[in-house]
Write a protein that binds this DNA or RNA. Structure first.
Lengths: 359, 359
DNA sequence: TTGTATGCGTTATCAA
DNA sequence: TTGATAACGCATACAA
């Protein structure tokens, strides 16, 4: 297909030079569009290169120029919970952005028993990458700490608890949950529960903070057992929701804020099983905007984030860091988009529905 | 952290040689455990290398040895449908296996408007990878066709319609759906429907074939509208299932085989919405073994596959191909594991339950 | 405008 | 057992 890059005798600059009767240096400069090459020669060289299927050896080029044009990405090490629905999207966006600039993406995992930081350190030390992208950030994150003192350009998707002196981009998780509470309060909900995620994960902690802050500011009621942490998937969500439903009907939340869509769906099933109607007896709200949210019954109100675009922006940022090293840390906060659907409605017999005018 | 790999003055073999008063070649051979180095020298060199934080430059090593020790992986180009739940798992397994052998994984996407084959061709041509892994195979797959004639070692996760002369590993999709039908027939179901996937995708086509073959062999009944193709996610599944439910109750399937768990869950919601009970009025069966299948209500009967292990095996295979190039194509077929749960039961008022003895 | 020479950091081939 | 020396393929400073 395409060019005759015959694998037995790979075309090199030396061969091209010989073929054209020019010096190797000339070929190299012609191909790289140096200004000191005659237009006619450039044409001739580039034409020959094309026809003979010349492809520069990236190893040689990297060695000569000292730039790898490769970004490293460490797969989040979470074999316990199943696949992160974002990972593929982020990876796709990141790879796309890099590929548009002819950079590569080197993906590694952390085998059981190996240390995350060592994996990064090896990649950096053996000159395999120029920069790094980190995802699924924890509040206290060894990877970030290592990279911070290593001098390697890197971008973090998410933030740690001390996010001042490095580049990151993140969804404004706290603000998103503030908006969620505001929305629910506006509909008349007072008793609002929350299924929070792993509190060592930054995104989960921030959503939880947003919930607590907004509930305090807006006089929501957080009863005993309303906030359950450590919910990471459908199954734990299912069980946690069952615990919530064990609260007597009068004291039970009328709305439930869930740290992710997956958690929301697990909760929905718990309600269904208990004979309750989602969106009528109890409203449920998720976070992510997964497509499944539109197929469940009722459709899931959620806070939508575009992880493909997040991946692309991470790519842009890390490329910028690698090509203009002395730039100041760039920090970008994106807003999640509240997407109302049928799983959230005003509370069943809420007095707030009737006389809500007087605050 | 770890070694003092000071980024300003990277440690090289030349520096080590100078430091130890040895020749560069000696250092190199000592570090690579050549047999012609005195044990004492080897120790001394390796100790110094460790202490001074020496890391071989992979670019230089690759250039000198002509081996890249890197495998390429092209992300499936499907921005329309959301993330493949397997991708992250497969990637994880693949990266893990490679990393255990000190190989790297280069991941690229196919930006909009670019050609999939070109992307692969560039990676191969510019010497960035030694081999390739392909996933989400189509029945007629340009990537496979290209790689087949390129001479580059590659492994396909899945198969094309003509899978004879290359290495692949795959779930036995056809057999899995034969087992599914057998299981349903054994419970007494006769009218069995099927929500099939994209028929240009190999896995979907083979599952569909298994369904058709088993239904024919086991005297199942495929009524008009029982088989719906092109169902790829929860939302299309939801709508397709609604079409199925439009069939009059007597002619309607009593069981529904779904090409994936996601599709099954979409179908479940359609039933719920229509006021039908999953597993009682209509049984539903999926394929994948996603964790959500245990959290939905009722829990989803499914055919389970372990995509992490699939990724690891793909890694083993491609490493084998790259290091022992003249080996014959290796082809591995794995069986999916039928996992009975509550979403499948004998049909409601099936006469087959009573007198099933006579075939 | 082009040619020459040198370097990038390793590995590999010879001598010694 | 070790030390020179030459690749590997490309980029670049300098000379012509």
């Amino acid at each position: 297909m395409s060019k005759p890059s015959s694998r037995n005798e790979p075309m090199t600059i030396a061969r091209l030079a010989q073929h054209l009767g020019l010096a190797e240096g000339t070929i190299s400069r012609a191909l790289n569009n140096y200004p000191d090459i005659a237009e006619k020669t450039r044409q001739r060289v580039q034409k020959a290169a094309r026809e003979l299927g010349y492809r520069p050896s990236s190893s040689a080029r990297r060695l000569a120029r000292g730039v790898i044009e490769t970004i490293g990405f460490v797969l989040p090490t979470c074999r316990t919970q199943h696949s992160d629905p974002f990972l593929a999207e982020i990876l796709n966006g990141l790879a796309t952005e890099l590929s548009l600039h002819d950079w590569d993406l080197l993906v590694t995992s952390v085998p059981d028993g190996h240390d995350e930081v060592d994996v990064i350190d090896r990649l950096v030390g053996s000159n395999k990458v120029d920069g790094f992208v980190i995802a699924r950030t924890r509040r206290e994150d060894a990877r970030v700490n290592y990279l911070r003192q290593s001098g390697v350009p890197f971008v973090v998707q998410g933030r740690t608890d001390h996010p001042d002196d490095y580049s990151w981009l993140d969804i404004d998780n706290e603000q998103a949950f503030v908006e969620a509470v505001t929305y629910l309060r506006g509909l008349g909900h007072v008793k609002i529960g929350c299924l929070g995620g792993d509190p060592t994960m930054n995104f989960a902690w921030q959503r939880r903070s947003g919930y607590l802050r907004a509930m305090a500011e807006q006089n929501g009621h957080i009863g005993v057992g309303y906030l359950i942490d450590g919910i990471t998937d459908e199954l734990t969500a299912f069980r946690a929701a069952q615990r919530l439903l064990a609260i007597t009907e009068n004291d039970r939340p009328t709305a439930l804020l869930c740290v992710t869509d997956a958690v929301a769906i697990g909760a929905m099933h718990a309600l269904t099983r208990a004979g309750l109607r989602v969106g009528e007896d109890i409203s449920i709200m998720g976070f992510d905007g997964l497509p499944i949210g539109r197929a469940v019954q009722p459709a899931l109100t959620t806070l939508h984030q575009d992880s493909y675009e997040i991946g692309r922006e991470a790519g842009r940022m890390v490329l910028d860091l690698c090509t203009n090293p002395p730039s100041a840390p760039k920090q970008t906060l994106w807003q999640a988009k509240l997407t109302p659907r049928a799983s959230v409605n005003p509370p069943a017999q809420s007095p707030a529905q009737q006389n809500k005018g007087g605050f």
